[in-house]
Computed example of a mutant assay.
Amino acid sequence: MARIVAVTACPSGVAHTYMAAEALESAAKAKGWEVKVETQGSIGLENELTSAEIAAADIVILTKDIGIKFEERFTGKTIVRVNISDAVKRAEAIMNKIDAHLAQTA
């Protein structure tokens, strides 16, 4: 079972930040994976990832439309960068690519 952590943020910090978080969570859970998504929206950091959660993660997903705060936390981890719109509309495809990557490295 894969462990995924993600951080979503969009330039306006409102709807897409949360829509992307929900889409990524649903797609990962559909594969039976553990997932936690931190949002960096207009009201600040929510559902903040702990150092233990980051350390245990197999993959880190970061949106790339705006800078992610405290990105140095993920140094040394396998990072997948996605557009916020892809996270909203193509979360299942993102998880399928991650699944293929994990199968190759297993």
Rank of each mutant, 00 (worst) to 15 (best):
A21K: 09
I43L: 11
I59E: 01
A2M: 14
T63S: 12
E38M: 06
K97G: 13
A20V: 08
E34S: 14
L102G: 05
I68K: 01
D99M: 10
A100W: 05
T105N: 08
T105P: 02
I59L: 08
E25C: 07
V37Y: 00
H16Q: 15
K77V: 01
V5Y: 00
H16C: 08
A87D: 01
T39A: 05
K69Q: 11
G32N: 08
T50C: 04
K31G: 09
E53R: 04
P11V: 06
S26T: 13
A30H: 10
D86I: 02
P11Q: 08
A103T: 10
M95S: 03
A87R: 04
V7A: 05
V7R: 04
E71Q: 02
A93N: 14
A93W: 11
D99L: 10
C10V: 03
G32D: 07
H101E: 08
I98D: 01
I98N: 03
A57V: 11
L45T: 12
R3E: 07
I79G: 01
A2K: 13
A55Y: 06
T8Q: 00
S26K: 15
N83A: 15
S42C: 11
E53W: 07
T50H: 08
A9K: 01
N47K: 13
I84V: 14
K36I: 06
Q40L: 05
A30N: 13
G67K: 15
V80M: 09
L49G: 05
E38P: 01
A103G: 07
R73H: 12
Y18P: 08
E48H: 07
E25K: 15
D86V: 05
R73L: 12
H101F: 12
V60S: 00
V14S: 10
A87Q: 00
I54G: 05
E38L: 06
A91C: 12
A30C: 09
L24V: 12
A87W: 02
D86K: 05
I79W: 01
K31E: 08
K97I: 07
A2R: 11
G13F: 00
K64Q: 03
L62C: 04
A6S: 03
N83P: 03
A52S: 11
S12T: 15
A57Q: 05
E34A: 13
D65L: 00
I94C: 02
D65R: 00
T17V: 06
S42N: 12
S85H: 01
T63N: 05
K97S: 13
T78N: 03
A56Q: 14
Y18E: 06
A30Y: 09
T78I: 06
L45N: 03
E71R: 03
I54F: 11
K97M: 13
E72F: 15
T78S: 02
I59D: 02
A23L: 09
T105H: 14
E34Y: 11
K69F: 07
